[in-house]
Computed example of a mutant assay.
Amino acid sequence: MNQSLLIAWEQYRDLYEEISVPARTILLEEGKVARYAYYIREGGVRAWFNNKGKETSFQFFFEGEGVSAMESFRTGQPSMYTIETLSAARLLKISKENFDLIADSTPGFKAALEEAVFQRLLHYRKLFVCQIRDTPQERYATLVADQPHILQRVPLQYIASYLGITPVSLSRIRNKFQK
């Protein structure tokens, strides 16, 4: 988060709540409307959806990142996915009304938010293309190259679902990759 946004957050301290939650806390359930956005001070969070009874992870968030189902948060429509903590987490939690108040009164806030949404869109497009074009081995190699911290902080079953493979296949790929 850039310096001017951090100053805005401190200036509006009474508009958000700092919370601590245990691992596997559901922050937003698929099908519910997002009423809050979160900024991660400590910990990890994943976004996933129910795919015919299986959880499919599609994004991970860590310290210094914001997370919400922005489509739902902005429009009031039900979320297409669940947001859940990966580990114990310390978060800043803000309601839509208070978020909008800060956005409307802080120069540069909306531009920074637009950039964050644009970066998320790029991430989704890259993931989409990789799922279609690349082999599981290539997807794993891209993850190792682009986001190695995920391999250190995320349970393997979530990484496997993120890559679109089974945990057994991930294990085989990891073994070959390490040789």
Rank of each mutant, 00 (worst) to 15 (best):
A88W: 00
K52S: 15
A69T: 03
S20Q: 14
F61K: 10
E42L: 04
D14T: 13
E55F: 04
L121F: 15
A37P: 02
Y38Q: 03
Q77I: 08
I26C: 07
Q131N: 11
I19T: 14
E138C: 06
T135Y: 09
Q131K: 13
E84S: 01
E138L: 11
K93T: 03
Q137H: 13
N98G: 09
A103C: 13
Q77V: 05
Y12E: 08
A23R: 10
P78N: 08
A89N: 01
K54N: 14
L92G: 05
F58Y: 15
E71T: 13
A47N: 02
Y39R: 09
F73M: 00
G108K: 06
E138T: 11
R35F: 07
L15T: 12
F62M: 05
A103D: 09
T135H: 11
K93G: 05
V117D: 03
C130R: 07
I19R: 08
E63Q: 13
P136Q: 05
E42Q: 13
E29H: 03
R41W: 11
F58M: 11
I26D: 06
A111I: 04
I132A: 10
I102F: 10
E114W: 00
Q11E: 15
P22C: 00
L28C: 07
T85P: 02
M70C: 03
E30M: 08
T75D: 07
I19G: 09
Y124C: 10
Q11K: 15
Y124S: 10
I94V: 15
H123Y: 15
Y124N: 10
R133S: 11
E84Y: 00
I83T: 04
E10F: 07
L91W: 03
S72T: 02
G64R: 14
E71K: 04
A37D: 09
D104W: 12
Y16R: 10
K110N: 11
L127R: 15
R120G: 09
P22F: 00
L101K: 11
V21S: 04
E71C: 01
E138A: 13
K32E: 14
Y38E: 05
S105E: 12
R35W: 06
K126D: 12
I132L: 13
A47W: 01
S68T: 15
F109M: 06
G43S: 08
F99M: 12
R24M: 05
T25E: 06
E114N: 05
R125Q: 14
K93C: 05
A89I: 00
A47E: 02
V21D: 06
A88V: 00
A141S: 08
Y36T: 03
S79N: 09
G76T: 06
W9C: 09
F128S: 07
F118Q: 12
A37C: 12
I132H: 11
A141D: 13
Y12H: 15
M70Y: 13
P22L: 00
T75M: 01
R35Y: 09
P107Y: 01
F58K: 12
D104C: 09
E30R: 04
H123K: 14
I102P: 07
L27A: 08
L86E: 00
V45H: 00
R133D: 06
L28S: 03
E30F: 07
Y81P: 02
C130I: 05
T75C: 00
F62D: 05
R35I: 09
N50T: 11
E17H: 14
Y140H: 08
Q119L: 11
V129E: 11
R74P: 02
Q59P: 01
